[in-house]
Amino acid sequence: MTIALIRPTTDLYDSWAAAVAEFGGGHIDGSGLQAPVIPGRVTLDQLIADAARLADTSIAPPEDRVHNDLYWIVDDAEVIGFLSFRHDLNEWLREAGGHIGYAVRESRRRQGYASKALALALDRAREIGLDRVLVTCDDDNVASARTIEGAGGVLQDVSDQTERGHALLRRYWITL
């Protein structure tokens, strides 16, 4: 297993499309895509352009966004999942999204990919000088809660986000 976080690229289009398809067209945490998701060249080209703009700290992000590093979780040349690392928190991210969002395709879950990807994201947080990061997961997502706790996450609370279209969310802080 050789896990890496890489920026979206057309070089892995087929693997990206297969990973997106495995999620069944719904929202995919950390992917930068909005549901419904229908893989296509235009969608990937737009995703790459949007990701580059949001990662560029020399350009102010749109008013409702923050600087964000969008990554694909890759094992060799296979896209295993997605990870979004937000440099700052706006109101919505403080309440529900956190600094880091990730998803691993169903066929590759329970193999350590989420843990390794989260560890790499924490390294990125240290690189840009953060002292701690907020990571959230649905209250009923036991696997993600264990992943976050395994990375040193300390539960802040369980927040009711149902009015925003989310389930109960577990909010964790990880000190770097």
Rank of each mutant, 00 (worst) to 15 (best):
A77V: 10
Q46V: 02
A52Y: 15
D11M: 09
V66F: 01
R170V: 08
L12C: 05
G98H: 06
R41M: 11
G98A: 11
E127N: 13
L12R: 12
D138K: 14
T2K: 08
D140E: 14
L130K: 03
A119L: 10
G165N: 09
I6G: 13
V133K: 03
D69C: 06
S144G: 11
I6A: 13
Y71D: 04
I100P: 00
R41S: 09
S115D: 04
R126C: 01
S58D: 05
F23H: 12
H27M: 13
T10I: 02
F85Q: 03
I128Y: 10
G150D: 01
L54R: 08
L176Y: 07
R94K: 10
R86N: 07
Q156P: 04
A119P: 09
W92P: 02
W16Q: 08
A77M: 07
W16L: 10
V66T: 02
T2M: 06
L89M: 08
M1Y: 04
D140Y: 14
E149P: 00
P62Y: 00
L70H: 15
G30A: 07
I3T: 08
T147A: 03
A4C: 07
I148Y: 00
C137N: 02
A51E: 04
D139Y: 12
A60D: 15
D139I: 04
K116S: 04
I38K: 12
A21W: 13
D69E: 07
T175P: 05
H166Y: 13
V154S: 06
G32P: 02
D29Q: 06
Q156T: 04
E22I: 15
T162R: 14
S107M: 12
A18I: 11
C137G: 01
G101T: 03
T175R: 04
L168V: 09
I28F: 08
G32K: 13
G101C: 06
Q156L: 10
Q111A: 14
R7T: 05
A17Q: 09
P8F: 14
E91R: 15
G165K: 11
T147W: 02
Q111C: 09
R170T: 03
I3H: 02
D45M: 13
A103R: 02
A167I: 07
E127S: 13
E78N: 07
A114M: 13
Q161C: 06
E106F: 14
L12W: 06
E163S: 09
T43M: 14
G129P: 05
N68H: 11
I6R: 15
G97A: 10
Q111K: 15
D64H: 13
G165A: 08
Q111L: 15
S58K: 04
V154A: 13
G30R: 05
R105W: 13
A145C: 07
A114K: 01
G153W: 08
N68V: 03
S15D: 03
L155M: 09
E78S: 09
R94A: 10
S58Q: 05
A125D: 03
S107P: 11
L168A: 12
Y172N: 00
Q161T: 00
A60N: 15
P36E: 14
R126H: 10
G40I: 10
L44I: 08
L134N: 00
C137L: 07
N68Y: 07
V79H: 03
A4W: 04
